[in-house]
């Protein structure tokens, strides 16, 4: 195939990936509106968002095709993969601590029982701030 044909293939692949990513952004928006409680909404904000971003940036990389900008896109993808679970964890923990998680909607809730059991204990590790807990 000629270079022009490869370039067309890359363009088509790029737009397909972009459509996939846009669809996942749409699904994330629908999810965060429809789901009933904070923890479920976090699922919608983490998983489709990460994959959607990966697809969209892959589409962009195929379109740009060369140059240093493509490596920066790789970096954004790696950042998102590393940081989305951390953000979800912190939001979930804050939700438990401020009482935003209502036990009624959950089928099984082992964390509330554990937190109630620990409630009288002084200075647990999870209260020491987010930075000291990981690593």
């Amino acid at each position: 195939m000629t270079a022009a044909a490869w370039s067309t293939v890359a363009d088509v692949a790029s737009i397909v990936l972009m459509l996939g990513g846009a669809f996942l952004c749409f699904a994330a928006g629908v999810g965060v509106l429809r789901f009933r409680d904070l923890l479920a909404r976090m699922h919608a904000a983490t998983k489709p968002q990460v994959l959607g971003l990966v697809l969209v940036l892959a589409g962009l990389a195929l379109r740009l095709r060369s140059g240093g900008a493509v490596w920066a896109l790789v970096l954004v993808v790696v950042f998102q993969l590393l940081t989305a679970p951390v953000a979800a964890h912190l939001v979930g923990r804050a939700g438990y601590r401020t009482g935003k998680v209502s036990p009624g909607v959950l089928a099984v809730d082992e964390l509330t029982a554990e937190l109630d059991r620990r409630h009288g204990m002084p200075a647990d590790d999870e209260d020491g701030g987010s930075g000291a807990d990981i690593g």
């Binding site: 590790d125 807990d133 990981i134």
Partner: peptide
């Protein structure tokens, strides 16, 4: 925790180190 958060179904909300 990172891996489990991104696979189907689960999300880590608390980790007791």
């Amino acid at each position: 925790a990172e891996l489990v958060s991104l696979v189907p179904g689960s999300l880590v909300v608390e980790a007791h180190r």
